[in-house]
Computed example of a mutant assay.
Amino acid sequence: MKKVFLPLLSAALLALGTTEVNAQTPYKTAIGLAIDVGDGPTLVGPQIKHSFGGANAGNAQVLFGDDVITLGVDYSYNQQIAGTNGLGWYVGVGPQLSFVDGRGWYGGDNETYVAIRPAVGLEYKIPTAPIGFHFDWKPWWNLTHNSNFEPARFTLGFKFTLK
Rank of each mutant, 00 (worst) to 15 (best):
K28Q: 13
K28N: 12
K28M: 07
K28L: 12
T29Q: 15
T29I: 15
T29H: 11
A30N: 10
A30W: 09
A30E: 06
A30G: 15
A30R: 07
A30M: 10
I31N: 05
I31S: 12
I31R: 06
I31V: 15
I31A: 14
G32R: 13
G32E: 13
G32Y: 15
G32I: 14
G32T: 12
G32F: 14
L33R: 05
L33E: 03
L33P: 01
A34H: 05
A34Q: 08
A34N: 13
A34D: 09
A34W: 03
A34S: 15
A34E: 07
I35L: 14
I35Y: 01
I35N: 01
I35C: 03
I35T: 15
G38F: 08
G38Q: 11
G38A: 08
D39E: 14
D39H: 13
D39C: 00
D39S: 15
D39W: 05
D39F: 05
G40Y: 07
G40K: 06
P41M: 03
P41L: 00
P41F: 00
P41I: 02
P41T: 04
T42F: 00
T42Q: 11
T42S: 10
T42K: 07
L43A: 04
L43G: 04
L43I: 07
L43E: 04
L43W: 01
V44L: 12
V44W: 01
V44M: 03
G45H: 09
G45Y: 07
G45T: 12
G45Q: 06
G45M: 07
G45S: 08
G45I: 13
P46D: 11
P46E: 12
Q47D: 04
Q47M: 14
Q47K: 13
Q47V: 04
Q47F: 08
I48A: 15
I48E: 00
I48C: 03
I48F: 03
I48T: 06
I48D: 00
I48Q: 02
K49H: 08
K49G: 06
K49E: 12
K49M: 11
H50N: 14
S51T: 11
S51F: 06
F52K: 00
F52R: 00
F52E: 04
G53F: 06
G53M: 09
G53V: 03
G53T: 05
G53S: 09
G53A: 10
G53N: 10
G54P: 05
G54E: 08
G54W: 01
A55P: 10
A55S: 14
N56A: 11
N56Q: 07
N56H: 13
A57V: 01
A57H: 06
A57S: 15
A57I: 00
G58I: 04
G58S: 05
G58Y: 00
